[in-house]
Write a protein that binds this DNA or RNA. Structure first.
Length: 186
DNA sequence: GGTATGATTGACT
DNA sequence: GTCAATCATACCA
């Protein structure tokens, strides 16, 4: 197993979204295998970056390989990986993880023990891993983050993104086909 | 200053 | 399946 290099993120957002499936993500040693992602690009009406740079989405316009975290619906944090060349303002939303390490810590944070409810969904994932606005803008190449290149070669499912009202026709959702830890079936 | 909206979730029928 | 919670953000006046 080896760490993901910084060049991994400086590619087309669709490729990164697909290649992140099967990657192990740990935050302070807590996490598991990414099983579901979504891509958001600059020329994408569903993306936060579509209308240009603001205070909230500034991290999206920075260097790739950093994490963009925002508060959704006033309650839930959502985490994204910045992709493409500097300023491209494209990101991959992390939607679900198969819990592997630090299960007890995740159960404490989530208040549930059912394995499939720990990290299946962007808000749940952030709560389980302890991600909030505090980590917004941090580089994934440094602690508390660890991203290990995937060992297996998963069968990838694709489909329309969840919870959006614009550009709904784009099939920019990626997942590990058949995983029990998806936020929803494909 | 006012208001509509939202990359969600959990509770409930 | 439906729906409320809860508030930062974006946009308009």
């Amino acid at each position: 197993m080896t760490f993901l290099s910084s060049s991994f993120y400086a590619r087309d957002v669709l490729d990164v979204a697909r290649d992140l499936i099967g990657v192990t993500l740990l935050v302070d040693g807590v996490g598991g295998v990414i099983v579901e992602t979504e891509a958001y690009d600059r020329d994408d009406p569903a993306s936060h970056s579509f209308r240009g740079q603001t205070a909230r989405n500034a991290v999206m316009f920075g260097p790739p390989g950093h994490i963009y975290i925002y508060l959704s619906y006033g309650m839930h944090w959502c985490a994204n990986v910045v992709c493409g060349e500097y300023g491209r303002a494209s990101v991959v939303l992390l939607r679900a993880i198969e819990p592997i390490a630090g299960i007890e810590r995740m159960e404490e944070r989530r208040g549930v023990t059912k394995r499939a409810l720990l990290c299946s969904g962007p808000g749940r994932l952030c709560q389980a891993l302890g991600l909030t606005g505090v980590q917004n803008g941090l580089a994934l190449a440094h602690p508390p983050f660890e991203l290990w290149r995937r060992a297996a070669d998963p069968l990838i499912a694709t489909g329309p993104r969840i919870g959006i009202t614009k550009a709904v026709e784009r099939r920019w959702r990626f997942g590990w086909d058949g995983s029990k830890f998806l936020s929803r079936k494909f």
